Amino acid sequence: MERDLALIELLADGHIHSGEAIAGHLGITRAAVWKALRKTTDAFDLPLQSVRGRGYRLEAPLELLRAERLLAGLSDAGRQRLAALELHPRIDSTNAFLMRAALAGAPSGTACLAERQTAGRGRRGRAWISPFGANLYLSLLWRYPLAPAALGGLSLAAGAVVAEVLSASGAEGLSLKWPNDILWRGRKLAGLLLEVAGESQGPSYLVVGLGINFSMVASQGRAIDQPWVALDEILSGPPVGRNALAATLLDALLDALERFGREGLTPFLGGWRSFDAFLGEPVRLLLGDRAIEGRHAGVADDGSLLLDTADGRRVFQAGEVSLRPIAAA
């Protein structure tokens, strides 16, 4: 692993590196360079280019995550709220890591980021495609004196905050799909996975996991079973650094989780509704093996989904909204 990471560190700039330079960097013979390159790039699914007579480079440069840059990007209040920062080159799942850490007593405000997830998870048990260095995989642990049932609205609060950060970073035309998918023109840009545990009457703890398609290319996302888009494709302004965006998101989520404990969902509802582009649209709500059709009527003050059906307006606390045309769903 150490040699793999040393090689990735060298190649991350996207420049051409000669076989001789690579051999010297890794402390191996010139003859062993090609084998080392293939082993590392195959293991980490990194597209490699060979330039005849000159050397090797990655197909696209990588901005690797750096703890010092993340910490420098936080506000003073964010640094006070952050209890611990975990950075991993490879991990099963940032959410799973923090759920285990929570059981072991990790403090509120522990964050985990990874370059790659081998078992990333989305909602309803789906896999979250997690190529090395191409996206953001971020999870944050927070503890509350509240019962787990009181934290249901947090998915909307987190979604609204993430959408606001991405919009301020130059991603125009974003929308939120209940409860917490972030879309751009119907294509998935980001998603959140919230996991809650604790005593029935409190206290409880929550891990909010965020995955953002940052600079993923088509070959890396071919296993995704829905339309998707990467952030670098849609920015209207200058490029956004991966560390800078991660720090801004972490800062905003730390603030939101603390504020939710004091004020609940109310301060975040306006933000969520401002990104709800599907009001009045026909949708299908998937509840296990059942599908309920109706028109999206917004969200209630507790974050529940409002759906106008043939039987009148109904309220739902769970399920997944499908935006595909009902006739084709």
Results as ranks from 00 to 15, higher is better:
Gly288Trp: 02
Asp311His: 13
Gly120Val: 09
Asp225Glu: 14
Ser50Phe: 02
Ala106Glu: 04
Leu279Asn: 09
Ser204Tyr: 06
Val161Gly: 03
Ala297His: 13
Ala190Met: 12
Leu279Tyr: 14
Lys35Met: 10
Leu7Ile: 06
Ile129Cys: 15
Val217Ile: 13
Leu250Asp: 00
Leu11Lys: 00
Phe260Cys: 01
Ile16Val: 15
Ile326Gly: 13
Leu7Asp: 06
Arg90Cys: 14
Ala119Thr: 02
Ala23Glu: 05
Ala60Cys: 10
Ala328Met: 13
Tyr137Ala: 15
Val283Leu: 07
Gln220Leu: 10
Leu5Asn: 07
Ala111Thr: 08
Arg284Glu: 10
Leu245Gln: 06
Leu206Val: 14
Arg126Trp: 03
Phe275Ile: 01
Ser175His: 03
Val51Leu: 13
Leu176Glu: 07
Leu85Pro: 06
Glu195Asn: 11
Asp45Leu: 12
Trp184Tyr: 11
Ile8Ser: 10
Gln80Ile: 10
Ser50Glu: 14
Ala31Tyr: 10
Ile212Leu: 15
Tyr56Glu: 02
Gly53Ile: 01
His296Val: 07
Asp4Asn: 15
Gln226Asn: 10
Ala246Phe: 09
Gln226Ser: 12
Ser219Val: 07
Val321Pro: 08
Val161Gln: 04
Lys177Glu: 06
Leu194Glu: 13
Arg30Asp: 15
Ala32His: 08
Leu65Pro: 00
Gly27Glu: 04
Gly24Asn: 07
Arg38His: 15
Val208Arg: 09
Ala244Val: 04
Asp4Arg: 13
Gly173Tyr: 01
Asp45Ser: 14
Leu156Pro: 10
Leu166Ile: 03
Asp13Leu: 11
Leu156Tyr: 10
Leu287Pro: 06
Ala43Trp: 12
Ser236Leu: 13
Asn180Glu: 09
Ala157Asn: 12
Thr110Ile: 07
Glu281Ser: 15
Pro282Ile: 08
Arg123Val: 11
Val196Leu: 14
Glu281Tyr: 13
Leu210Pro: 11
Leu141Lys: 05
Tyr56Lys: 05
Asn213Pro: 01
Gly122Met: 05
Ile292Thr: 06
Gly53His: 00
Ser169Leu: 04
Leu58His: 02
Ile91Arg: 05
Ala147Trp: 11
Ala72Leu: 00
Gly270Trp: 08
Arg185Pro: 04
Gly152His: 09
Gly153Cys: 05
Thr41Tyr: 06
Phe214Leu: 11
Leu98Ser: 06
Val51His: 10
Gly191Val: 12
Cys112Ala: 14
Val196Glu: 12
Ile234Tyr: 04
Ala147Val: 09
Ala111Tyr: 06
Gly280Met: 09
Asn95Ser: 09
Gly211Val: 05
Ala104Gly: 12
Ala149Glu: 11
Gly312Glu: 11
Leu210Tyr: 11
Thr266Trp: 12
Ala252Phe: 02
Cys112Gly: 04
Thr94Met: 00
Arg123Asp: 00
Ala277Cys: 04
Leu140Trp: 02
Leu140Pro: 05
Leu82Ala: 06
Arg290Pro: 05
Thr94Asp: 00
